[in-house]
Amino acid sequence: MNPRSGTRHTCGVEVITTGQPDDQAFWIDIGAAAQSGQFALCLLFFSQDTFPPALITGKMATFADGLPYAACSTAGEIGAPDGDTGQCLAVLFPKKHFLTVPLRIDGITSIGFDRIVTQVKEARQTFENASAQHHNGSGEGDVFAICLIDGMSVVEEMVTAALHWALEDIPLLGGSAGDSMRFTRTSLVLNGEVGDDCAIVIFFRSTVPFKIFKTDNFVPTERKLVVTRSDPERRIIYEFNASEAAAEYARAVGIDPGALSPMSFASHPLVVRVGGEYYCRSVQKVNPDGSLSFFCAIDDGIVLTVAEPTGMTRSTNTAFENVVAEIGSVDFVLGFDCVLRRIDAQNRQATQRIQKIYQKYNVVGFNTYGEQYLSMHLNQTFTGIAFARAEPSAGEQS
């Protein structure tokens, strides 16, 4: 497993990683950051196979008591020096450049749209009040919001829509928590409280210029699948074109039904056309009865198109180059990358090329069970926020 490593970016954000749950130096470093009083928030992305949630909360209580933090389990981590997974990543945001206000929304599968909107609006008012006092009332900097959602909740679309409604002009991005492709239970933590069936929303005001962006690399084909029987609440499709879903999907992509796997779903995504654009509706798994579970919302009558991923390296590199053209040199990127993109990169032997791009732009984040971007819940997409690099002032450590 990866040894501990740490990086401090020009804006003062610190990133610390480890692949060893017994790495005391990792927690000591986070503790030192907490004791300095210089940091507003710590984000933690962790493999719960290696780092159980109880370990996270226990270590943070011991070493970093008083430091606000939000954490979620992943389907893989982004940011270890060698690109390995099974990690715990800590991203520390300095008070000098960031104001943060977190909110945890519990019971998202039953709470309903209106109550989510109410909670987010109340938190937004708290954030705006804090912003009015920040930087001596100058209101300096721009705002955005990060969302971490239980990736097994099957309500990400509703939650994202409610957040977008309540946030109004505040841009949103984020990712659905994972559990290393076990599809059993994910974990989210806010300041020591662990749970699932919840979402964590974090308001940020940043004096560091930033750019929110997304990229994908799928191209629609002429092959169509019509949903003829489904369970929308559980995101399960039983039939395509009045035939068993798994068998019909396998026929459409040219694979034996018995050979369907996450690699198949990554290499042959399904997309739906909305407003002239195509969005992924990725398959999560095959069920014993031949039905298919999905990562995104589905319903009877939807026409899904078989797509083919193409040029992931090229499209990813172009997206980052476009960000540089807009904001200049990139300091680091907080990224949420669909786990199916990672699987597809492995399948096409493009993993090292993608990792080089992520390392070049200092991407830190995690592989998700879905991505949030503005008002949309997406699949097989990278969503990120890039922070501009600034030359450190005299006496500052870079």
Rank of each mutant, 00 (worst) to 15 (best):
P262Y: 02
P262M: 01
G254W: 11
S282I: 02
R281N: 03
D256H: 05
G254P: 12
A252T: 12
V283Y: 00
R281H: 05
L270S: 04
V274E: 15
G254S: 11
G254R: 09
G276D: 09
N287D: 11
R251D: 12
V253T: 13
A250N: 13
G254V: 10
G275S: 11
P288C: 11
R251I: 11
S282Y: 00
E277M: 12
V271S: 03
P262A: 01
S261K: 03
V272Y: 09
R251Q: 12
K285Q: 08
P288I: 13
A266L: 01
P288W: 14
L270Y: 04
D289L: 08
L260F: 10
R251H: 14
V286C: 13
V272R: 15
G275F: 05
M263F: 07
H268V: 02
A266W: 02
N287F: 09
G275M: 11
C280E: 05
N287K: 13
S267W: 01
R273N: 14
N287H: 09
Y249W: 12
R273D: 13
V274M: 14
Y249E: 13
S261A: 14
S267L: 13
I255C: 09
S261C: 11
V253W: 06
G275L: 09
V274H: 15
R251A: 15
Y249V: 11
A252S: 15
R273E: 15
P269K: 01
R281W: 00
S261M: 04
A259R: 10
R251C: 13
V253Y: 08
I255R: 10
K285N: 06
V271R: 01
P269I: 04
S264I: 06
S264N: 06
G254L: 09
V253F: 07
L260W: 09
P257T: 06
V272F: 07
V272G: 15
Y279D: 10
H268D: 08
R273Q: 15
G276L: 14
P288M: 08
G258C: 02
Q284H: 04
S267Y: 01
V272N: 07
R281A: 05
V286A: 12
S264D: 04
A259L: 11
P257A: 12
L260Q: 06
S267G: 09
V271H: 03
G275P: 09
R281T: 05
E277H: 14
Y278G: 04
L260C: 04
V283M: 00
K285P: 00
H268R: 12
V286W: 00
C280N: 12
F265A: 00
L260I: 07
A266D: 03
V253E: 08
V274Y: 15
M263R: 11
L270M: 15
D256M: 04
P257K: 06
G258Y: 02
G276Y: 10
P257M: 04
S264Q: 02
F265H: 02
F265G: 03
P269M: 05
A259T: 04
V274K: 15
G258R: 07
A250R: 07
A252G: 12
Y278I: 06
S282G: 12
P262C: 04
